[in-house]
Simulated assay, not measured.
Amino acid sequence: MIRKALKRWMARHASGWRSTRHLEARLRFPGMDFHEALIRVTYKRVFGVWPDLETPRTISEKMCWLKINDRRPVCAEITDKYRMRGYAERLGLGHMLNDLHAVWDSAEAVDFRALPDAYALKVTNGSAWNVIKRPGVPIDEGAARRRLDLWMNTNMADHKGEWYYAASPSRIIAEHYLDNGGGDIPDYKLFVFNGETRFVQFCEGRYQNLRSIFMSPEWEPLPFSYKMFKPFGPPPERPAHLEEMIAAARALTEGFPLVRVDFYVHGGRLLLGELSLNPVGGYTVFRPDDWNLRIGDWLDLPDKASLAA
Rank of each mutant, 00 (worst) to 15 (best):
E237W: 02
S19A: 06
H241Q: 15
P234K: 14
L210R: 11
R85W: 07
T154C: 09
G161S: 06
P138D: 11
W104M: 10
I172F: 01
D184P: 02
G182S: 14
A247K: 12
F256H: 05
L53Q: 03
C75S: 11
M215I: 10
E141M: 14
A167P: 02
G86P: 07
V41G: 03
T154W: 10
V46W: 07
L299M: 09
L93P: 06
G92P: 01
H266M: 07
T124W: 08
E204R: 14
I246Q: 10
H241M: 13
M32R: 13
N278H: 15
V131L: 07
F224K: 08
L6D: 04
V259G: 01
I295W: 02
S106F: 07
Y177C: 00
V41S: 01
A14V: 04
S276I: 12
F112Y: 14
H176L: 05
P288Q: 06
D187T: 04
V265T: 07
G94P: 07
F214K: 03
S106D: 07
T197W: 04
L307I: 13
E77L: 15
L53R: 00
G16K: 06
L53S: 03
K7L: 14
P279V: 11
L38A: 01
C64K: 02
P186A: 10
W9Y: 11
W298H: 05
I39M: 08
